[in-house]
Design a protein around this nucleic acid. Sequence first.
DNA 1: CGAGCGCTTGACCGGCGTCAACACCCGTGG
DNA 2: CCACGGGTGTTGACGCCGGTCAAGCGCTCG
Lengths: 234, 234
Amino acid sequence: MIPIQIDSAWQGTSDCRSCGIRDMALFADLNERDLDDIHAPIDDMGFAANAVLFTEGQVALGVFTLRKGMVKLVRTTADGRARIVRVLRPGDVVGLEALATARYDTEAIALVDVSVCRIPLSVMQHLLSTSPRLHKRLMQKWQQALKDADDWLADLNFGSARQRVAALALKMRDPDQPHITSFFARDDMGAMLDIQLETVSREISRWVRDGALKACDKQGRRYEVLNEALLLQA
Amino acid sequence: MIPIQIDSAWQGTSDCRSCGIRDMALFADLNERDLDDIHAPIDDMGFAANAVLFTEGQVALGVFTLRKGMVKLVRTTADGRARIVRVLRPGDVVGLEALATARYDTEAIALVDVSVCRIPLSVMQHLLSTSPRLHKRLMQKWQQALKDADDWLADLNFGSARQRVAALALKMRDPDQPHITSFFARDDMGAMLDIQLETVSREISRWVRDGALKACDKQGRRYEVLNEALLLQA
DNA sequence: CGAGCGCTTGACCGGCGTCAACACCCGTGG
DNA sequence: CCACGGGTGTTGACGCCGGTCAAGCGCTCG
């Protein structure tokens, strides 16, 4: 789990007007005049699984809107242990904190192949000075990020290993297909739930045995939720 | 630990110009014209220990700037367990999320006697529409809150019980007197660290035995940090 | 001075970490 | 096409940390 290569690719320049997820993104409420006012290019980028978007403390060039895939935010403690503090999903902003400090507070790593658009800080600053609509939207993004952080702590890092795995299964369900849930490498899941990877594996097996989950693939990444109530009561 | 009475008191109307902690608060960067532009009264309020500032989901009237004391943010999970997601200290904004949604996302309870000033949402909204200085400051508050949330998860909810208690001792040091640290009721500390109150008690005793901490009072609320290095390496 | 609450300490046991072996998938190269 | 090897997931054995239950203590307040 040590990503060496930085595997990213520029894929073109975004036209926000035709963005498929604009209604859930930062620029949802911008009007034509606002969009005309964007001078620096907004790059469309792709990152392969395990690629590093940015590292903790790095000087920020911009913020990212996550279009597709999932990104983990990782903190490394003084004694070298890695902790996953949150997982971002499509519509979330990666590196929001850069707007306040021009530095990233956490490391961001792609969990699967992801596509993002990178919005330069200069564009954000210019738009923020002219568009109250963006202000409102940005405030919602801040609020959502803070709520996600608190939820993550309250839901996923509380109770027995069995409960934590159940909570993760419920949280990682596909918004479009609520019966399908995404899991990750077992050591990543351990870093999310603060339990060991062997325990993760054991508890997943137990939920499968108990008929609450069913594997969709052989790599252990996608599972079907068979009995939601069972996971909920835990 | 079930606070029944709501023990709060209106203590007058604040004059922000003479505020002792204004330089670390939300209104730090406002100028005279901005301050003149505040029409609704900003109330100075006190809450006794264990008083509830607001509950989860409650409709928000305003945000609070914490002037003195400490406030715990509590999430209650579906199965009724209470989890402390963060502790706010002087200079922090309590109920920031209300600016985006006009509702509070978590319950806020005074850990000790606290004094706050309550800023009505209408005042914030009006000032935000006129003062870019407040915008900047607000963004910093959002960023700090998010960083605090991530720190809380990464520092305090990771590793052995012994390490968690050590981390809490270090985090709760008085900014003015770094050798003095504040502890809380043992069940509150358990809800912060996700361990049982008996374990909290045991680990504190162990740190005292090992010469890293020393009790300052007989209630177990204030301790002196004798050996910081010992706590750090844990 | 007594009652009650919260902190501490002890005994016991279960869940989870640790170490290890094994199974399986997949990519590589013969 | 198959043999091989590494990486990852799973499962087992065992010991310890921390949860649970219970008793005792000390502080505070009536």
